[in-house]
Structures are given as structure tokens and as C-alpha cells.
Simulated assay, not measured.
Amino acid sequence: MLIQLAIKGLLVALLALSAVWASRDDNKYRKLAWVTLFLTFDLIMFGAFTRLTDSGLGCPDWPGCYGHANPLQAHAQISEAEAAMPNGPVTVAKAWIEMIHRYLAMGVGVLIIALMAVAWRNWMRARKMQVAIPATSSPWLPSFLLAFVCLQGAFGAWTVTMKLQPVIVTIHLLLGMGLLALLAWLAARQSPHAPVDLAARSLRLPAAVALAVLFCQIALGGWVSTNYAALACSDLPTCHGVWLPEMDFNNGFTLWRHLGKTADGDFLPFPALTAIHWTHRVFALVVTAMVGWVAWRVMKVAGLRKTGTWLLAALVLQILIGVSTVYLNWPLALAVAHNGCAALLVLLLTMLNYKAGLAAVSRKVDHVSASLSAA
């Protein structure tokens, strides 16, 4: 079974590698980094689809499906489970959704191994030829990415084996977004960038804080999703017709507990779900203010205006999607788009942090050059 699964992961990766090979880009490593980033973004979107269609336990074991490499081979066991619980977590459709998600994840893992292997090969060749190795060609980030994706895979396994325990699923989501940010940083440092006004160096701290605040909101959003609290407040801007509804923060934000249960094993009370949903809504105001302010400042910096415009557009789109999901009673397509737009914001803020860092480095280089000239 493991060999069959590995082959499927290789096939997914080969499709991406063929796009790299066929590319007209002379820098194939740069192209590989961007293709891996694109596939990871797709994986996050499909992961959201998997979670929102309740397909996380479509195959209740890991890494295969009832000990098989695909749902076709496990058809008898899946049909038996579906007959026993027609509305349960195991169906043929859910099994395929879950396994496709795993195949995509394995494909991303293979591509990251390829990134690391090429980076180390280039590094060793440069050392052998005694050529200066630029910081952008360092193999340490791709190596860290491999360790990171292994950790992400472990949480993916625990998501299944621990039966969708909310804290595990939320960490799995955060690690996926973290992997996306790391790959965006890797892809950015392989690419040429237009000169940026040195005023961008003042954006380093605000951009970093904005990214941290966004990750907090993603954690809260994941907590809403994994606790099935999306419909706890069905009106907007109030909740149950009031600004401060009855809420149970203690049970709602107890991290280590089973799905739908309190830490004592009782059923999670509805006020706990309300507290989870309400907190996500309120913190969205903080994110909107912080990211909106950063985007406004970025739009005034030469060389970053396009990034600022995209960031502001993505923020507005995310707000519209969030409001629409409540008014339209959380349709699946909009809920998946809500996750995708969050991933897009992570991408844009990561790129902004990278470019602000470039401006700061340029300032240091200019300062050193000026000092040497004066000497």
C-alpha cells in the first residue's frame, strides 16, 4: 500500500515537474519554487473543501483507506460503513475527497524534496568550484521546508487518528498557512524585484505585525470551522438579535477536548459555540483595521503601490465573502472562497514583508558603501 501511495504522490509531482520542464523560464529552480507554491495554495483550498464537506474521516485510517491505496480497493468496507451509518462520516464521495487531499499533500512533499535536493546540489557545486554563493541560493530554507512539511503531515495523520480533535485540526490549518508563507518567501527570493523606495523600511514592523494578526484570525476561523460554530450566529451585525449574546468562553476556548464535547466529556453547550463565533467576528475588526492601515501606507511607497492595491482589494473581498456567507447561510463555495482569500492575504503580506526587508538591506548596503568611500 505504501508503495502505491508513493507512486500516486510521484504522479502528482510529475505533473507539476512537467510544467517546470516545459517552461520557457531559464531559471528552472525559480519556476519549481513558484509551481510548488501554486500547488500548495491549491492544497489549502482543497483542504478547506475536505473539512467543510465533513470528509476528514472519509477514510478513518491513515495513510491509506481501510488499509488500501485508494477508495476503489476499499469499496466493500466503505459501503459497509455507509450502510451502517448513512449520514455518518464515511461515504464513497467523502473517501475520494479525503484521499485526493492526501495525494495532493504527497505531491507537495515530493516537490519540496526536489527543491531541497536541487538547492544542495547547486550549493555543493558552487563550493567545489570556489564560487561565491549568494544568500538567495542557501539550501537551509528548503531543508527547513522539508522538516516543516513532515510536521504538517504528522498533524494531518493525527487529525484522522484523533477523530478531528479541534485543536489538532486548527494547528493543521495554521501549519498549512505557515508552509504557504515559507514557500512564498522562497519563491520571492528567487525572483528579481523592481527597486523599492527606501521608505519601505519603515514598513517592516507594521507588515510583520499585520501578518501575525492575520494568523491569529486564521486560528480563530479554524476554531470556528473545526467546532462547527459557523451557524452559531445567523444574523449580522448582531448575534441572536443582540450585541452581547449569552456566551460560554470557558468551554468554548478549552483547547484539549474532543469534538463537540467539553473537557469533562459533556456535550458542548450552544453558548460556547456562540462565544467562538462572536470572538472571530470581533477580531475581524482588528484585522481589518490593521491590514487596511498597512495597505494604505504601502500604496504610498514607490515600488510597492501594486502590492498595496492587491492587499487592499483582497481584504475588501474577504470582508464581502465573510458577510455574504452569513446572509446566505454559509454556502459551500463561499466558505471555501473565505479560506482561499485568507491564504491570498497570507501570500500578499509575506511578499510585503520580503520587499520591506529588501529595502532595509539596501539601506545597510548603501550605508556601508558610503562609509568605505569616506574612508
Rank of each mutant, 00 (worst) to 15 (best):
H75Q: 12
L72D: 10
A81W: 00
A76S: 06
H68C: 05
V90K: 00
V90T: 03
V92K: 05
V90W: 00
L72R: 01
A83Q: 03
E80T: 13
A69D: 05
A95D: 01
A74L: 11
N87V: 02
P71S: 03
N87S: 05
A95I: 07
N70Y: 02
P86V: 06
V92Q: 14
W96D: 02
A76T: 10
G88S: 04
M85F: 12
P86D: 09
A84V: 09
G88F: 07
A74R: 05
E80G: 03
W96T: 11
N70C: 15
A76G: 03
A74E: 09
M85H: 15
Q73D: 15
E82Q: 14
E82A: 15
K94S: 07
N70M: 08
G88H: 01
E80K: 13
A83S: 11
V92A: 08
A69G: 01
Q77A: 05
A83R: 04
V92E: 12
L72G: 03
W96V: 08
I78G: 00
H68S: 11
S79F: 06
E82L: 13
S79Y: 07
P89V: 11
A76P: 00
N70Q: 11
A84I: 12
G67M: 02
T91I: 09
M85L: 13
V90Q: 00
P71E: 04
A76D: 08
G88V: 04
A74K: 02
G88E: 03
W96H: 07
L72K: 02
T91M: 08
Q77S: 13
K94W: 15
S79C: 04
E82N: 07
